[in-house]
Every structure is written in C-alpha cells, then in structure tokens.
C-alpha cells in the first residue's frame, strides 16, 4: 500500500493534467501510466540522496515517452511534460520560501540548494535521453535535417 497508493495518486493527477492540456481521450491512459511509472521507479530505488533517484526516474520517463511517441506517432512532449509533473519539487520550493520568511537561514539555504539539485537532476535526465535520441535520428536519416543541408549543398 505504501508504494501503490502514491502511484495511483500520480496516475490520477496526470489524468487531471491531461484534461487541462487538452490531450485527446484515447491518449490519456498512456500519459498517466508514464507519471505512475516515474513515481514507482522513484519509490523502488534506494539511495541516501534524492538526487540520483530523481535522475533515474526522469530517465525512465523520458525513455518511455520516446518509445510511446514512436509507437503512437505523436510528439514526444505530450508524454514527457505530463509524466514529469509528479516529480516537480513543488514541496521543496514551498518549504524554501517558508524558511526564508521565518528567517531560518540555515534551513533556507539547505532546502533551497536541495530543490535546485532536484530540478537539475530532472533537467539532466531529460537532456541526456533527448540528446541521445537526437543523435540516433541524425545518424539514421541525415537528409531530414534541413538546417544542415543548406550549408552543405550550397557552399
């Protein structure tokens, strides 16, 4: 229960976000599954710090989003942005602000830096997978990337 329940909540919050983002009904289950999967990975991993857990969870979500986007032939952002939302460190941001107002400088700096590190871990995870996929796409079909074509063929 301790593991299952948060995943169900993550699934349902992603469903609510999908309605806000106007995702078509047939894609909603798949986007929500991404969110639940990310949180499941986070809960199952066991590291002393949260940063590697966030990083690995984001990598798993990104891979899931890339694979699903290929299968359904839709843009990757659809799956990626919605599934990453449960990982966004909203709690960290809130507590940082609260400590700042209370004047507890040590806790403020500690929580703030930790939140920043978590945000960095998410960004790095997305960046890693996106860059690898982009590399693979260019290797597979270089002629599709018109930005390069102009320079190569004309000069």
């Amino acid at each position: 229960m301790r593991i299952l329940l948060p995943c169900v909540y993550a699934f349902l919050s992603c469903a609510a976000f999908s309605i806000y983002f106007n995702v078509s009904p047939k894609r909603i289950p798949l986007t929500c599954f991404g969110g639940a999967l990310g949180w499941l990975v986070y809960l199952l991993l066991d590291f002393p710090s949260d940063v590697p857990r966030y990083f690995i969870a984001t990598v798993v979500i990104s891979v899931y989003a890339e694979v699903m986007a290929r299968i359904c032939k839709v843009p990757v952002t659809l799956f990626l942005t919605t599934a990453v939302l449960p990982l966004v460190p909203g709690g960290g941001m809130y507590y940082t602000m609260e400590y700042c107002l209370r004047g507890e400088t040590a806790l403020f700096v500690e929580t703030g830096l930790n939140t920043l590190a978590l945000a960095g871990a998410i960004a790095l995870g997305i960046m890693l997978v996106s860059s690898l996929v982009r590399m693979w796409k260019v290797m597979k079909a270089p002629k599709l990337f018109y930005k390069d074509k102009i320079q190569r063929e004309d000069y």
Binding site: S13, T81, V84, L85, G90, M93, Y94
Partner: peptide, 27 residues
C-alpha cells in the same frame, strides 16, 4: 495546510515551460 497549498500550487507551477525550455536548449 502545507499539503493543501503545495497540492493546489501544482496547477500553477510552470512544469511544461521548464521541460520545453530544456528541449529547446538541447536543440
């Protein structure tokens, strides 16, 4: 009160903007 505030603020948190800005920087 903390859970309510954090939970409801998630509707306003710019998660999409951050993710898309990352993907733009990569490209």
């Amino acid at each position: 009160s903390n859970s309510i505030i954090i939970g409801t603020l998630m509707t306003l948190v710019p998660g999409v903007a951050i993710t898309n800005s990352m993907r733009d920087v990569i490209a």
